[in-house]
Design a protein around this nucleic acid. Sequence first.
DNA 1: TCGGGATTGTTTACTAGAAAACAATTTCTG
DNA 2: CAGAAATTGTTTTCTAGTAAACAATCCCGA
Lengths: 176, 176
Amino acid sequence: MPSAEAEIAGRTAMSHFSDTGTGPSVAERQAAVSLGELEHVAGLALRLAQLAVFERLFACLELGEMRLSELTVLHAVSRNPDIRQGVLADLLEIKWPNMTKLVRSLEKGGLIERHVPPDDRRSVALRATPEGVRRADAFVGTLKAGDREALAMLDDEEYARLLELCRKIAGRGAGA
Amino acid sequence: MPSAEAEIAGRTAMSHFSDTGTGPSVAERQAAVSLGELEHVAGLALRLAQLAVFERLFACLELGEMRLSELTVLHAVSRNPDIRQGVLADLLEIKWPNMTKLVRSLEKGGLIERHVPPDDRRSVALRATPEGVRRADAFVGTLKAGDREALAMLDDEEYARLLELCRKIAGRGAGA
DNA sequence: TCGGGATTGTTTACTAGAAAACAATTTCTG
DNA sequence: CAGAAATTGTTTTCTAGTAAACAATCCCGA
């Protein structure tokens, strides 16, 4: 059975981009090509939109050494001190095994610390270091700007509506 | 440099799902957790929404042996006879090397045929076999139903708006 | 017409993420 | 209280997808 994870449109919780794909001027010689009915399947459209946005986002972002996933996790930790690792993983739709690697990497970089709370010694609580907090703060501005830039084809009303709809879909209608 | 492909939210053009992730009742013990400002970054929201939709979609879908990527490609081929492989790849945001594998797999399954057009012997033109067309047709209904089901939290107006916005983002505002 | 460059597709190597098995702890139940 | 079951996280293994190098064909200009 195929794993639902890697099917139609990338599934990882955090991915790069870049397009090694031999140049973008291919469709020009075969016009009038479309997906037919699939063009109107919202799930696929969502996927294609997400890919397009991330492509543009990565173009604007200049992440340096860090990956977007790491920065996102770091930020979430900095805003939720002592958050447990599993909670964080579920929040960001990152699989637990991958979160382990990610967190270990951030710890090695001195950006977060891992504690084992005495009341539940199975779990791991995360906390950002001062340096981690600084990085997370610096990251937010860049990301917000890049995000808006990547969605420049939308006006403010459309942008707001998109956000609202996405949050509703992800089950975050009003939370925080 | 990290590859923009696999960063924040899966990037493949087509992925499965499933959640091996140790059960979904983790956040219940740590309430009041949120992504902070990141909660209002549309790119990330788009990503999380896409993940949620695909998860639900795969739950409804029952794909059997085939993968969603294969069915999508098959459908596109069946609606665009003699489409060139590269055009198809760009259309679905699938990297060329992956499209090669995908197409070869469909060919081996007897669902499509590959031709080398005489006027450009570098390229490969694809065409669905009768069996391929039948499969593609059968697939559309299932997918549409599953898609609507996966987005059941949206009413019709919201669904339509989402589709419109996504198509605009992906640069398919009015095409076909 | 011929030779450099671009386009199209494939092969190979690598990486990120998913799945499954595992260990440690806690909780529930008899 | 003892043991079964569930929760939490980690390790290992595997797959899907990306990147980079390659081969073949086509195009364009001298």
